[in-house]
Design a protein around this nucleic acid. Sequence first.
DNA 1: TATGAATGAGATTTCATTCAT
DNA 2: CATGAATGAAATCTCATTCAT
Lengths: 229, 229, 229, 229
Amino acid sequence: MTAGHIIMGIEERKTREKEKRRYLILRKAKRLILERGIGSFSMQDIALACELSKATLYLYFENKEAILIEILEEAISEFTQVASQRIPVEGTGLQALQALWATYLELLGESQDLVILTGIKNYLDPEFPFGDAQASEKFTRATAGLVDLIESLLHRGMSDGSVYNSEASGRQARTVIMIATAVIDTVSRVPRPQRDTVLMRNSMRNTFELILRGLASDKVDRSTLWLSQ
Amino acid sequence: MTAGHIIMGIEERKTREKEKRRYLILRKAKRLILERGIGSFSMQDIALACELSKATLYLYFENKEAILIEILEEAISEFTQVASQRIPVEGTGLQALQALWATYLELLGESQDLVILTGIKNYLDPEFPFGDAQASEKFTRATAGLVDLIESLLHRGMSDGSVYNSEASGRQARTVIMIATAVIDTVSRVPRPQRDTVLMRNSMRNTFELILRGLASDKVDRSTLWLSQ
Amino acid sequence: MTAGHIIMGIEERKTREKEKRRYLILRKAKRLILERGIGSFSMQDIALACELSKATLYLYFENKEAILIEILEEAISEFTQVASQRIPVEGTGLQALQALWATYLELLGESQDLVILTGIKNYLDPEFPFGDAQASEKFTRATAGLVDLIESLLHRGMSDGSVYNSEASGRQARTVIMIATAVIDTVSRVPRPQRDTVLMRNSMRNTFELILRGLASDKVDRSTLWLSQ
Amino acid sequence: MTAGHIIMGIEERKTREKEKRRYLILRKAKRLILERGIGSFSMQDIALACELSKATLYLYFENKEAILIEILEEAISEFTQVASQRIPVEGTGLQALQALWATYLELLGESQDLVILTGIKNYLDPEFPFGDAQASEKFTRATAGLVDLIESLLHRGMSDGSVYNSEASGRQARTVIMIATAVIDTVSRVPRPQRDTVLMRNSMRNTFELILRGLASDKVDRSTLWLSQ
DNA sequence: TATGAATGAGATTTCATTCAT
DNA sequence: CATGAATGAAATCTCATTCAT
């Protein structure tokens, strides 16, 4: 208990309380998704888990959709930020992608937030990455940072010759994102993750390693393309 | 009432009529899934499309789930059968896999049945390929043939040196199946496929090509690993 | 029990049963409106009154609105039909209007359906007679017959000199309809009508008499413009 | 802090502040009713408009109903007061009624307060003018002044022969009040009044003119019974 | 065999009102 | 005095499934 705490005014305390509630709701919602899968996820369920009334949820979020979007945004922005820091400035684009996925696997072990990431995405916008931009505007905004990052790394890899350069380079980026998205999504649907966290992480590591090998140009020594356990 | 009818027997005729109805229901259900996506189609919708009553559906299928399982089984078994025939007896395991996916893309253009394949899978058994075998017994049975086929091709490739041989060869098979599964699933969620069939097929072709390159050992000339348009 | 009853097939009997249910729902809904006013009128209430489940109501009507529209249409069409028959072919336009309202009061005594007529109208389309035609299309269709009838009678009266001819003859029609509408509406809100049916009918008779006197041109002997009790 | 403030007294200042708030709430509520119609405005809406919290509203008014009643009383009493002044002491009862409605139309153009008058009435007391006095006591109190005024003018008109004297003179008064009430009510439901203020005023002018002509005895030259634009 | 009819359970959302601070 | 926070109750509507005929 420091002097700082005493100084903190009522205003500030209330704001913090409110943030706490928001966070509580998001946390419980996340946990519900992780435990039961995205399918069975009702406002009633969240309310019960938070020991709040359904009506109260609407004080903190406009919509059911708003809750999902917020979880998604938070998870994505946290991941993008951490990953950006971990990616070495020097080195090839392929190595950068390797670092990106290594970070993913590492964070996955800690919080599992990332698992639900694209599960939510697909729930909100099942047409991605095909749908019209119009409808999926919110989602596009939320994921823009991550998509941009991956695209830039692919371009970097194509420039430095570490990434296999197919005729249509733009399509390559799309494909990689879709595969990653799809796999994470599939994994995210698994309801009771505690039980087989290790198995899941292994599956994703294998997947990312396979993608890396698929992306690698012939110049690259592919035996180096593994992600640490 | 001809002699022929008498010979066929009432019993047999009834059985055939029943089979016809089952087939009608499955066909219409498939079409609905393809048109609207798996999320939003109800027993009511199927009944309407078949010009039957909802109650009648329950005479032929125990459940909504049962209908989906049957569609899944049919699509898989048809694909497995056709693919088995197309795969060259001679040639490497990798070439065999290449042929497998080429077949997939080809059939996709014709019937699109295959698109719904894993869409249904995820609806039925979101835990695959992680869940306990107990729970996903039905699904496992339905997909057994295809899983076996892919596994055998991978093993063949590892034996003849065309497939990159990681330490854990069994895991490799799982991973490949999961990626394919996941990507097809993601693609299968797009509700109105008529509009962007070409886009979808391109996405999947890119994906399969990437996987093939990822699987290829260093001995293989990777520039040959493309799937025809 | 005639031979006709025996001949009546299952098909026909079912259709009649279904009609009965529809009618039951409409009748109970009407009664609820009459008893409690339009304000407190929920699907739950109707379901309870009919001893049916809420879901069942949706088998017979697409919407809550659909129920109201049907009640409205039925009441209006019945009234318009009966009124048309009662209106003398010969005689002035004013006398025709007199006959119209006499019919209204008479039917009101029998069924009270007509009371709720414009109550529903205002619930469905509060902007009438001002709103844009776009939004109130359904209502316009339902009431078209009656509005046409009143307008034609007013024109007839203006032609034969029995109705006071203000500069803008079209506006006159609108005004009359609005007054009638408004008054009936006001009356229709009274929840427990059994108690003061007589009072209500008197009020409306007075109103219609006042309107008739207001419409009458100077040529008309206004002492004849009363509506029988 | 000036001497003036000290003289005014804390008590008095508080009272004035409180009055200010009450007034603010009433004013904003009125505006909301005029803008959106009575059906769709919530306590939340008022609170937002006043930049107060919902809870605060309950410090000044017991109920949502209480707010409506107060608006009603204020509008009526203001109108009654102004109208009383405008009504010529000399002249017939019919001329007095003409002046009354002319005043109404004039004030309507300025403030539109009066439009909401009976809209509120019907919301509060749908049974008027039929219900038992017991239930609608509050409303009766609020409208007493205006009802008294109209009744007295009608009696005056019947006395001086300008108003058509039906057998039951008391009933005549009731009817007139109900018509006016009903028409104003109907008009008041139109949500966006800015757009068609002119249309609304025309409708009401026509209505009042029709009523005047209906009330006029045969002695009166009915061509004089118009209300200026 | 076929089905029309019925429904329980549940989904999201709104709103007037209360209460501790 | 003021309010942020909370909520019970209610509203409309959907859907997989059952059952008597």
